[in-house]
């Protein structure tokens, strides 16, 4: 139906010439000045041994910055890419599954469940700078509440943000707490427009709740899921504030993701050319990731 009308429109409506450019101009102007221009500049300086303080003292080195990415000592690029992937996978898989489960739990229903929706959304409406501090205190291995409770229960007490194996999970727990509110709302929206008739029919046919979900509800949620997955992967690949506030990339590089490494090179060590090369690579990784997900989404759609 939609496709049909689309085709009708394509045929009957003339090209609108400059109007399209006019309507997109305000947004494109802002993007050009503050994002696209500086990105081109970044691409340019990534081929230099760049001196931010005095650009006239920069020297052209071609692809050396890129080559250095893969030879660099500490933390090497691949380790950081691995950390990014770790975080991203946990947020995309864990976050999506958790959001979907929460949305199924909280959909429709009365006052109580509506209050539950508010509670889960609340963390998302707080700035990371403010609430990550609270989680740093909760995770404190000497004075923190979690440590104290574990001790009371005679359970082992990991060092959380000070342990290279626990630091990343700790940041992920915080990030899930902060982010799922938004994806839950997306899924609630998706569930609201799923066809009640199909579900009803399935139930009449004697389908179990699980079968009903798997064969009826889930396929209808595909577009929302894809949207949530794409948005979550982009935001997690670029996530920075929680790492800055909670672990500063440590300990021993355990939470140095690509975007944190980028911050450190570009903003702390002022190795600007190298930082620029990293930024370009991060951009390519993000774009590739997004395209891959769309492809996969289409493939799955075709299979169904």
């Amino acid at each position: 139906m939609v496709q049909l009308s689309e085709r009708v429109r394509r045929r009957s409506r003339p090209r609108e010439g400059w109007a399209g450019w006019l309507y997109t101009a305000p947004a494109l102007l802002i993007f050009s000045v503050f994002i696209i221009g500086p990105t081109a500049y970044t691409l340019y300086i990534s081929t230099f041994h760049w001196n931010t303080l005095n650009p006239s003292m920069s020297s052209f080195i071609g692809t050396d910055n890129y080559r250095q990415l893969f030879q660099s000592t500490t933390p090497d690029f691949l380790t950081s890419a691995g950390n990014s992937l770790y975080y991203c996978a946990a947020m995309v898989i864990g976050g999506t599954a958790l959001s979907l489960a929460l949305a199924l739990l909280l959909q429709r229903g009365g006052r109580l469940l509506s209050a539950g929706r508010v509670a889960i959304f609340a963390p998302h409406a707080t700035p990371i700078v403010a609430t990550s501090l609270a989680w740093v205190w909760l995770f404190n291995p000497q004075f923190g509440l979690i440590d104290l409770v574990l001790k009371h229960l005679h359970l082992p007490t990991p060092q959380f943000l000070f342990s290279s194996s626990w630091a990343m999970p700790s940041v992920i727990v915080y990030s899930l707490w902060h982010e799922v509110g938004f994806t839950v709302v997306l899924f609630l929206g998706g569930l609201a427009v799923t066809s009640g008739e199909l579900s009803e029919a399935a139930r009449v046919d004697g389908a179990s709740p699980w079968q009903e979900f798997w064969h009826i509800t889930w396929p209808q949620l595909r577009p929302v899921t894809l949207f949530a997955v794409v948005i979550t992967s982009i935001t997690s690949l670029q996530a920075f504030t929680q790492f800055y506030e909670m672990s500063r990339g440590g300990p021993a590089y355990a939470t140095t993701t690509l975007s944190y490494l980028l911050y450190q090179e570009a903003f702390v060590l002022f190795d600007t050319g190298y930082g620029a090369a990293l930024a370009v690579v991060l951009f390519v990784v993000t774009a590739a990731f997004t395209l891959l997900q769309r492809r996969l989404g289409d493939r799955i759609a075709a299979d169904l």
Partner: peptide, 22 residues
């Protein structure tokens, strides 16, 4: 419908993937 629509839209989508720090 206008000339360059696909290209402009791709450009807009690419903007989202630029790491802000840099």
């Amino acid at each position: 419908r206008f000339r360059g629509r696909g290209l402009l839209f791709a450009l807009v989508m690419a903007v989202m993937m630029v790491p802000g720090t840099v």
